[in-house]
Amino acid sequence: MNEEASYELYLKKSAEHHEALCKRCGACCGLFEKDPCSELVCGEDGRYYCRIYEDRFGLRRTVHGNEFLCVPVRNVISGSWAGSYQCAYKRELTGWRVYPVK
């Protein structure tokens, strides 16, 4: 395997690992702030999903019509938000314990 192919494989595996961390609690999409993103939906499994995940970044609206800027979690991970204590990404970065969402 050449260096470029090896790097591409590394990026793919890193992205898969990162995506697998998410517990789909909905906290980063405003669920615990009582005015979540209008694109946030609850799946049949009780976990939360973005209806437009691949195109989510940019100006969006909450269910009450408020505008906000959807950004990658890495841009806000050092801060806190309602429910951020549950975020598996924060656990990976900081070593916090993440509690399961019921």
Rank of each mutant, 00 (worst) to 15 (best):
V101Y: 11
Y7N: 09
R74W: 10
I77P: 10
S6I: 11
C50F: 00
Y99E: 06
V98N: 00
Q86H: 09
Y48Q: 04
K13S: 12
K13D: 12
V63N: 05
G95K: 06
K13V: 12
Y85V: 12
G95R: 08
A15P: 01
A20P: 02
I77Y: 09
N66K: 07
F32W: 12
C37W: 00
R91G: 10
S6P: 00
K90F: 00
F68E: 06
E92C: 03
L11S: 10
H18N: 10
H18G: 02
E92N: 09
N2L: 04
R56P: 00
L69F: 07
Y49W: 13
V98G: 04
R51I: 01
E92W: 01
M1I: 09
G26Q: 01
C22Y: 12
R97P: 06
K23W: 11
M1F: 03
R97F: 02
V41R: 15
C42N: 09
C28E: 03
S80W: 15
K90V: 00
I77L: 13
Y48L: 05
Y53T: 05
D35R: 01
K13L: 15
R60L: 06
G95Q: 10
E54W: 09
S78R: 13
C28V: 05
T94Q: 11
Y53A: 10
D45T: 03
K102M: 12
Y89M: 01
E39I: 00
G26F: 06
G46R: 07
S38G: 09
K102R: 11
G46Y: 05
L31M: 07
P100M: 10
Y49R: 05
G58I: 03
R51Y: 09
E54N: 10
W81C: 13
W96Y: 02
H64P: 04
Y10S: 10
S14K: 13
F68V: 08
C37Q: 03
R61N: 07
K12S: 14
E44H: 07
Y89V: 01
A15K: 14
E8R: 15
K90M: 02
W96C: 05
L31E: 02
P36V: 04
T62E: 06
V71S: 03
N66G: 08
F57Y: 15
R56A: 05
K34G: 06
L11N: 11
E54V: 01
R91K: 11
R47Y: 08
Y10C: 12
V41P: 05
E92R: 07
R51K: 15
C25F: 02
W81F: 14
E44V: 02
